[in-house]
């Protein structure tokens, strides 16, 4: 389903139906997912529709820009070491319209097939509401349904001299960089700075030798997603400072 579509078009996959048809001088966007129906009228010479994965913090309502991934089992890492592993993350699908001159991009719709749940990171006074996802820890990339889950390559670095037990990681959507092709991919890092503080962030995708050996699929160059958050504000930090433990 991901990709560029010229108008008019209609596509159906996994219970999602998206179409764009001309009605007199307007375009009618129609999306159906279960009982959820969205219809929008569009004036203007739309040229393309782009459907791609976006940051998973927009639905059902944009109340936070943070994603908390909880590990299904706590992970122990020795002090001063660095390890790479894989997680999954939820996917939201964004539909964008591009005008005739390819100049301006407008978000039309966001929806998801993934389970949506929120949680609080930190204490009631001063904590941060996050979208929550539970993931297994994989030493090789899993093969989830790319319409529902993506693969996150995580580099975990323990800069302390002590063993650390990690059961969750929180990420800011402002730093997310998504890539897609046959799968959806993000490359993240988490640096443990002390007993209960850490910093998380994202990196641009480039294919390393290690990754190529671990993950043959990654030899294919993926397309870069059009994101929602990194087009928004300039003054927001891209990294997330985990002050309330991990």
């Amino acid at each position: 389903m991901y990709g560029n579509y010229d108008l008019p078009f209609s596509v159906e996959k996994e219970g999602i139906s998206i179409s764009m048809e001309k009605i007199e001088k307007m375009w009618l966007y129609r999306r159906t997912l279960g009982t959820d129906n969205v219809e929008k009228l569009i004036f203007g010479d739309g040229k393309h529709i782009i459907i791609n994965p976006v940051e998973p913090v927009n639905t059902p309502k944009e109340i936070t820009s943070n994603l908390l991934i909880e590990f299904d089992k706590p992970l122990l890492l020795a002090g001063g070491t660095r390890k790479k592993f894989f997680l999954t993350f939820p996917i939201e699908i964004g539909v964008f319209i591009l005008d005739k001159g390819n100049k301006s991009l407008q978000l039309l719709d966001v929806f998801t097939l993934a389970r949506q749940k929120f949680t609080l990171y930190g204490p009631v006074s001063g904590g941060i509401v996050c979208k929550r996802w539970k993931s297994g820890i994989y030493s090789v990339p899993p093969s989830p349904n790319p319409m529902q889950e993506g693969i996150m390559e995580m580099t975990l670095r323990n800069a302390t001299s002590e063993w650390a037990s990690i059961s969750k990681a929180v990420f800011s959507a402002y730093g997310m960089r998504l890539y897609y092709d046959a799968d959806v991919f993000m490359r993240a890092r988490m640096d443990l700075r002390s007993k209960d503080t850490a910093e998380t962030g994202f990196e641009l995708q480039h294919i390393s030798g290690d990754l190529r050996r671990d993950y043959p699929k990654d030899q294919i160059t993926r397309k870069e997603s059009i994101e929602i958050y990194n087009r928004k504000l300039d003054f927001v930090p891209m990294n997330f400072d985990m002050r309330f433990g991990f």
């Binding site: 059902p60 109340i63 949506q116 749940k117 929120f118 949680t119 609080l120 990171y121 009631v124 509401v129 929550r132």
Partner: peptide, 8 residues
């Protein structure tokens, strides 16, 4: 319910 928090 999405907005019923898991924690607390």
């Amino acid at each position: 319910e999405s907005f019923a928090l898991l924690n607390p």
